[in-house]
Design a protein around this nucleic acid. Sequence first.
RNA 1: UGGGAGGUCGUCUAACGGUAGGACGGCGGACUCUGGAUCCGCUGGUGGAGGUUCGAGUCCUCCCCUCCCAGCCA
Length: 469
Amino acid sequence: MVRVRFAPSPTGFLHVGGARTALFNFLFARKEKGKFILRIEDTDLERSEREYEEKLMESLRWLGLLWDEGPDVGGDHGPYRQSERVEIYREHAERLVKEGKAYYVYAYPEEIEEMREKLLSEGKAPHYSQEMFEKFDTPERRREYEEKGLRPAVFFKMPRKDYVLNDVVKGEVVFKTGAIGDFVIMRSNGLPTYNFACVVDDMLMEITHVIRGDDHLSNTLRQLALYEAFEKAPPVFAHVSTILGPDGKKLSKRHGATSVEAFRDMGYLPEALVNYLALLGWSHPEGKELLTLEELISSFSLDRLSPNPAIFDPQKLKWMNGYYLRNMPIEKLAELAKPFFEKAGIKIIDEEYFKKVLEITKERVEVLSEFPEESRFFFEDPAPVEIPEEMKEVFSQLKEELQNVRWTMEEITPVFKKVLKQHGVKPKEFYMTLRRVLTGREEGPELVNIIPLLGKEIFLRRIERSLGG
RNA sequence: UGGGAGGUCGUCUAACGGUAGGACGGCGGACUCUGGAUCCGCUGGUGGAGGUUCGAGUCCUCCCCUCCCAGCCA
């Protein structure tokens, strides 16, 4: 059975890059009838916050990427927060020490940093080995650690040999001998480092596939060595490409919105975001681009992941969002749009009227947040607009003649034509002026849709106000 | 300093060693009020140089550019 995991750190909001990784894991799990597991990697004590954990979950739920095992829903392989698994890591570290595959180090982090800088200044790679730390292991130093309640760090003895990774996306990757030196697996504060915790967890949680960003490709070398030390077969690895900003650098806040939450607040739909993200580094076998979550699940496969980085294109996402908006059932659209009207201070009194407004204006918006301003004239009178002198009589006559007309375009349009012809006014200029009188703007939905919905009373009132009556 | 990944229109992405195509964007047209909707058309690309081959985006070599790891962050 396929078991995959998404393992974010609760150090911020859900980034679209992480969301894309979660999405691929989710799609693969669902396609293979496997399990999608959420694991919280909260060993960075300074940056991790419970509030972020909750926000991450909220965003994943909003996207529709529901997990089968996790801190909230539990499961057979818990706990699902790394901070609750510290004893497990300690035991595994001690096992490696006993087997001679790891060792204690009594150097302070600052001392190690010094060694590192020295190596770099000498033009050498900052690789460590056990001999370098022996001088710190003295009775005085040990006593010191004990008095301060410190634990020695645990370093893993990195075997000096080649490692080969057959990655699903990247193909065969060879890590040459001497690529890295020994590395920390347990810190002096008693918490594990990323690579160690990751391997222990993936092993114990019986993860079959690790689908993650290729920024961790080089970390895989350490993890392969750890699997070997534990005498366990590693999972299948698939390193997906990185999402970059327009400048080719990693996508970050300086490029604009990067979190799922920010896009949600701007009025983007989960359907659109999921669809767009899925196409960054993956393609449908037939080249289809507009795909529901269900279609993504049925067509997804790891072998159609592409290895090159992708630049995030807000314009294509916005276009896609507009498409989903326009093709959504009006009832659902109404529910989703309401919060944006409330925020804009527009009161919705008549539900049916509201739906009709959305039906007309949706042609002209691409995100939910654009609805209020685009349709404000349906709910509030715009400031009166000056009618050009040569058209005042036209509007006066229309005001009179339309009083007793049944309010449909079939009966209204002939009146327009008749009056325009009588006054020798061109349709183009008339309609533009009418548009400004009714909406206060020069652009908007089609007048043939606006007029019936506004109703006779509002139509005539706005003409009257502009006539200065 | 050491190790690893990547490079196809502006962007995303397709192409058994055999026609470089699709989408978004941009430009133009149609839609007889406007237009962010709709329809039609155009524009536009294999980082560079060699090699192998009947034939190279694809295989090989060198060069260039970009990204990632070597944190007691993840």
